[in-house]
């Protein structure tokens, strides 16, 4: 547990850890609980709301860094919360969850100022990666660089350095590395990696074996730069970016 909390973010003030406050607006108690426990382990502080009313009353009283918002709520649409929240808390990041997976909802949500849209069902590692991306975009962690052991990633310039040596990565390799680093010490399935990298186009492939090829290339490049090989193969069906700190 303590190992995971040591996710180190280097910034000018060299803060070791920044507490992120997240409001989970989700009417399904089980899912809210699941996300809560998962995100707590990631070091976030979470609060839950299950209705439009609860959500707005929480937003009146407290300030959150990010709101994870389900669109289908028992007493109304999450879009109403979104509209209201955007006026009151301009700095708050918003991630929409939707069971509908409808293009219209997505466009409307993003036009109203949401940062991202994640259709259900999702991998929790994907949720984590999206939340991190929102933090980075909104500069909530003070800097755009992520350091994890000997790897340094600048998410603005997309430059990756290992021991100060620049890596020449393809876009997919870069995205994959970032996904690993953000979800370090977690088992990532090939499917979740493939979906993260290719999104909906993944349907075109009959197996996720090509993920292996990308990982092989990435490892090779890190090794060539003299970096530590942190990517562990888990019995051939998943991968883990292992960090001991």
């Amino acid at each position: 547990m303590s190992g995971r909390k040591n996710f180190k973010i280097s910034s000018k003030t060299d803060r070791i850890f920044v507490i992120m406050k997240i409001l989970l607006v989700e009417d399904n108690a089980e899912l809210a609980q699941n996300m809560h426990s998962y995100l707590s382990k990631e070091g976030y502080v979470c609060e839950e709301a299950s209705t439009v009313e609860q959500a707005t009353s929480k937003l009146v009283g407290f300030k959150y860094d990010v709101m994870v918002l389900d669109l289908m709520l028992p007493d109304g649409s999450g879009l109403d919360v979104l509209r209201w929240a955007k006026q009151e808390h301009k700095d708050m990041g918003i991630l929409i969850l939707s069971a509908k997976n409808s293009l219209q909802d997505k466009i409307e949500g993003l036009e109203l100022g949401a940062d991202d849209y994640l259709p259900k069902p999702f991998h929790f590692s994907e949720l984590n990666a999206r939340l991190r991306a929102i933090f980075r975009r909104r500069q909530l962690q003070g800097s755009s660089t992520i350091t994890c052991e000997d790897i340094n990633i600048d998410t603005e310039t997309h430059v990756v350095k290992v021991n100060d040596e620049m890596l020449d990565l393809t876009r997919k390799e870069y995205e994959m590395l970032l996904y690993f680093v953000v979800n370090k010490n977690r088992v990532l399935t090939k499917q979740s990696i493939a979906e993260h990298l290719w999104g909906d186009y993944i349907d075109a492939l009959d197996s996720f074996d090509f993920v292996y090829q990308h990982i092989k290339n990435l490892r090779k490049k890190i090794a060539q730069a003299g970096g530590k090989d942190s990517i562990q193969t888990m019995y051939g069906s998943g991968y883990k970016f292992e960090v001991y700190q």
Partner: peptide
């Protein structure tokens, strides 16, 4: 179709938690 997605997310999330327990 929608109502199906939330329980599915639950199941996936729990399996991922189990998977990460190592």
């Amino acid at each position: 179709s929608h109502e199906m997605q939330t329980p599915l997310t639950n199941a996936i999330g729990k399996l991922e938690l189990i998977l990460s327990s190592g």
